[in-house]
Design a protein around this nucleic acid. Structure first.
Lengths: 157, 157
DNA sequence: TTTACTGCAAATATTTTGCAATATC
DNA sequence: GATATTGCAAAATATTTGCAGTAAA
């Protein structure tokens, strides 16, 4: 079985478990939204998700999408980011568990990088009585494409 | 001279330098807002800043505050964070340069911690051709106060 | 049968934008 | 004098909320 197929099965099980143990309801909307979430391998926002549901002719309201995403965050299936744009970005935890974000301050593009050493280093840190569960590292700087452009601009002055 | 006094002087110089070299204007509003920014040792949002200006009887429009904060971010005096709440949070770079954020997923409280080793570790990382300038580490988990509450709740069941 | 959930519309919150008046350079 | 900046109001954007109807348990 492919890794992606397995991932969505695990996610569905996790959601079911969470809903049951919290006496919440297993609505078809929640599982339909979860499927669309798992069709993404990178970041996405609420509106993209909403549009994708529409294009699949599975109508849900925006409120329901917001509701579902909060739920998914609560049960650890999804992680929420606010990089700097106004709207929140989400991603499956599957990915976010082992990568970090490079954010170009010139063009705003976000690239994911894996860094197992850093992962291990940060995970082993202890901050007093704080009970760490996960972390997000945002690295800001200038991507190579923008560096090139900046060099050109400087030359032309 | 106290460290705080020195900090604002450096910031003013930095701003002046930036404005001059980019042919922008040294308006009194910008320097007045900068002063209020430096009266904070922790995070603050646009509206807090705006209200503080009002209470000092120095009226500026919200647009001007937004404008100034973007400017301060551009010249590296201030750093912008979007922790999860809707409104952006800002802080002087003076502080953010050497601390990280512990965010409690239960009560939302944010605590700052210094970790020089981690600082050094991350700074030394190389990510391909990406030109790192700074980074933000957000550590999510449960603070000790919330851990206590959770234990109590479990017991009472 | 109970009540959590959905969908819709309206409300709220935050930030951005257009533009005339003003002030810096 | 040229034009960047300000202030104000309006617009745009993103998210939350209230509530009646629906459906999961």
């Amino acid at each position: 079985m492919a890794t992606e197929d397995r991932a969505i099965l695990i996610a569905r099980a996790k959601l079911t478990e969470y809903l049951t143990s919290n006496k919440l309801r297993k609505t078809p909307e929640r599982f339909a939204i979860l499927d669309v979430v798992f069709s993404h391998n990178d970041h996405f926002d609420i509106d993209t998700l909403y549009e994708e549901m529409e294009s699949r002719s599975y109508h849900v309201s925006r409120s329901t999408v917001y509701n579902a995403m909060e739920l998914f965050c609560d049960c650890g299936i999804v992680r929420k980011h606010q990089f700097g744009t106004q709207q929140a970005q989400y991603e499956k935890v599957m990915n976010s568990g082992n990568h970090h974000h490079l954010i170009c301050t010139e063009c705003g593009k976000i690239k994911e990088v894996k860094d197992a050493d850093l992962m291990r280093f940060v995970s082993s840190r202890k901050y007093g009585t704080f009970n760490m569960s996960y972390f997000s590292l945002y690295v800001y700087g200038v991507c190579s494409a923008c560096m090139k452009k900046m060099r050109k601009t400087t030359q032309n002055k």
